[in-house]
Write a protein that binds this DNA or RNA. Structure first.
Lengths: 248, 248
DNA sequence: CGGTGGATTGAGCACACTCAAGCATTGTGG
DNA sequence: CCACAATGCTTGAGTGTGCTCAATCCACCG
């Protein structure tokens, strides 16, 4: 499906950032051609995880951030009483664990939703790169700043939006992220279970199911299991964009 | 009450970071004594705002971050339909607008809740400092990372916690932040209106009022208008810490 | 085949919202 | 100095959205 196929046997398969299909959306965007080899030398590529395997566990000592190369990752907190709270889904080209830079330990766990491959970027290397390569520090600050903004958008979603608005927003967010990767923004497969979506959006699974059914009846979307076709993007946007901050 | 008094007439009153009572909690913590003058030369202190005045407005071109020196600031989005959403309260020693580093324009507005003073740190200077002073970049990344974590905690609060749990969490958050500033963690004045608290926590004003009344009957807190005394911190913590992620 | 985990659908309930009224505090003008 | 307005806060009554509990359905797989 346009994505590289990774087999277990390839193990520490490790091409350059140069050759990576994501170089236009991942960290290399901030790095000049000349500096690319420096980035490559510090990043170890090709870590492969099967569905359900953990990238890192909450409270493990924090060592590295990870860029998703293929597949999909979910991050979640576990609270005292053992309940999980999904805090994010990460698709290829996106970077995990930026929220843990301030702490000794990972503040959440990260789990592969399907067979996935990751690039590991050790923290000390990250800081070193940022100090040395001019554009890279800026890019890193921007990545983190965007992460703050995302998280604030999430707060608005959780505090103001109805179940329908949340799910419309969610589907559109996936759509734009797939588009950024040059994949179809209207026809994709949800890498996560309904349960994870519900947890992430602060809803019950049953509500997700009911709203998706309603969306289908309204001819907004069509589902075949986890395969999802956005039929009426504008209709979804009308629902989603209530409460969305705008510059006048 | 141990805080500097600023009068309008002092205008661009501008002491050094050195002399600032917040040097132990603000940006200087990351800077060696020798580098302090460099920080000072780039930061302009003593911007004074009256209650209700804006530090910056959503969609203004982003130029600077601000450290709160005295008073209290609230930040909020305005959505298309004109509704506000409070995204944070900032007390002395805390830094505003880190979420806008990735964008051309401020992503939210910032307003003084009472007469407040601020230090302005232009973005280009911030990046310059980060590149030059070794510890400063790390500190900046940590500040932003902590901001992400805060925001994620907020998401958990909004998606999982009941009204009582939200308000207990809120009061305790203020308490620890006052303690950090060496002010009483059990006896303080809320700088914001009930309306702002409600908006921030995703509740109706009426709910805030009702829960505060209940807390008083349970001898957990005592209110005299906006003056607040935490009577039973442990009791509050029992309520607040449900759903709080913990390392085993 | 039956078993298991995920997804859907239905019925009833609860928490927090909305609407509405009343109270308290502060500030302004006569 | 008081009247009055304006704003902020509190309390009450009724309602609704989304949760809980429960049953059923479906696909995948041993």
């Amino acid at each position: 499906m346009g994505e590289p196929i990774f087999t277990r046997e390839q193990g520490s398969y490790s091409p350059s950032c140069n050759q990576c299909s994501l170089s236009s959306v991942c960290l290399p965007v901030a790095v000049s051609h000349g500096d690319l080899h420096r980035l490559e030398s510090l990043v170890s590529q090709g870590k492969i995880l099967d569905r359900g395997e953990l990238v890192f566990r909450q409270c493990d000592p924090f060592k590295s951030c990870f860029a998703v190369q293929g597949g999909a990752i979910k991050t979640y907190f576990v609270s005292e009483d053992g309940e999980k709270q999904v805090t994010g889904f990460y698709l290829p080209g996106e970077v995990i664990a930026l929220d843990s830079v301030s702490t000794e330990n990972y503040s959440c766990s990260a789990e592969a939703l399907e067979r996935s491959s990751l690039c590991e970027i050790p923290l000390n290397h990250l800081e070193e790169l940022a100090a040395r390569i001019p554009g890279f520090q800026q890019h890193l600050l921007q990545l983190m700043s965007r992460e703050i903004q995302n998280s604030q958008q999430m707060s608005i979603l959780l505090s103001r939006k109805t179940a329908e608005e949340r799910l419309a927003t969610f589907l559109l967010s996936l759509s734009t992220r797939f588009r950024r990767r040059r994949l179809s923004p209207t026809h994709f497969r949800l890498p996560m279970a309904r349960h994870d979506i519900a947890n992430f959006l602060g809803l019950a699974v049953e509500t997700v199911s009911r709203v998706f059914s309603r969306f289908q009846k309204q001819e907004l979307v069509r589902f075949y299991g986890r395969n999802c076709t956005l039929v009426d993007i504008n209709g979804l946007a009308d629902i989603a964009h209530k409460h969305t901050p705008m510059c006048e």
